[in-house]
């Protein structure tokens, strides 16, 4: 931990960042993000296996952008998110100082996104077997059973949009769901609008989701909504061989095409 503190301290002191985003642990053991602006605060930073939150979501905030150069402590999913966000031209290489701890416990500081790309590809996290199993199980149900399952799950959605707020890939300044002319998705927490919202969310994240599962983690109603994007990532991978968060160049399934893409349902 001391190494991490020293690293943050030196980054803030030598001016390579004026804000550092990291995790902190409260006395009750709760992990929250912390925004360090002074070198002497760097001992607030904490890292452990319990640091799950995807901190990449903060780099889109105007309050953070105002700091100019920003440092961020990233776990592997945050690195994938940052890489995907970089591929989508949402951040500049020279404005971000990324630090991580590799599996051997050593601090790694990245000079540029090229290094992040190499690191992520060397330390690629395996797909969550539990999620894959649940997707598999659902896919084997009958259509009616699947509809009932999702209706049951999604009808509990209270439309708090925590899933959207927590997701680093949901960075549009104006979301379709906020648009009321036309009103694409009805605003109350009602099965109809809920299903449409979750379908839309999944479609907009298809092939972009890095599977950090932050959306499901923050959902106050415990809806397993990450399964939707996991399923679509799987489809994008099987059909087009594209995976999110592994390349510094944009390789998004729905913005590219191949002339010989295969399907079996268009007449």
């Amino acid at each position: 931990m001391q190494e991490l503190h020293n690293k943050i301290k030196s980054i803030l002191e030598n001016g390579s960042a004026s804000l550092f985003i990291a995790y902190q642990k409260s006395r009750e053991g709760k992990i929250t993000p912390t925004f360090i602006t002074k070198p002497e605060q760097s001992q607030k930073a904490y890292f452990g296996d319990d640091c799950k939150q995807n901190l990449a979501v903060y780099i889109h905030k105007q309050e953070v952008k105002n700091f100019g150069k920003v440092g961020i402590f990233a776990n592997i999913y945050t690195l994938k998110s940052l890489l995907q966000i970089y591929a989508e031209n949402q951040i500049r290489d020279d404005y971000l100082k990324v630090v991580t701890i590799n599996p051997n416990g050593a601090i790694v500081e990245f000079a540029n996104f090229m290094e992040i790309e190499n690191y992520v590809n060397e330390n690629k996290p395996a797909p969550n077997p539990e999620d894959m199993e649940r997707v598999e199980k659902l896919s084997n149900l009958s259509r009616e059973e699947r509809w009932d399952y999702w209706l049951n799950e999604l009808s509990t959605c209270i439309k708090c949009y925590a899933c959207r707020a927590a997701c680093p890939m949901c960075y549009c300044t104006k979301c379709t769901v906020d648009c009321n002319q036309p009103q694409w998705i009805s605003t109350p927490s009602h099965s109809l609008g809920n299903i449409e919202w979750h379908i839309m969310r999944a479609m907009h994240l298809a092939g972009r989701c890095v599977e950090c599962n932050e959306c499901a983690r923050v959902c106050p109603m415990d809806i397993p909504l990450n399964l939707l994007t996991v399923k679509l990532n799987d489809t994008a991978n099987i059909e087009f061989g594209q995976q999110a968060g592994l390349k510094g160049e944009l390789d998004y399934a729905l913005s590219t095409f191949k002339v010989d893409d295969k399907e079996n349902f268009i007449r």
Partner: peptide, 10 residues
Amino acid sequence: IFKSLLDFVG
């Protein structure tokens, strides 16, 4: 992609 999602949702 969309058909895959609709199938999955039922």
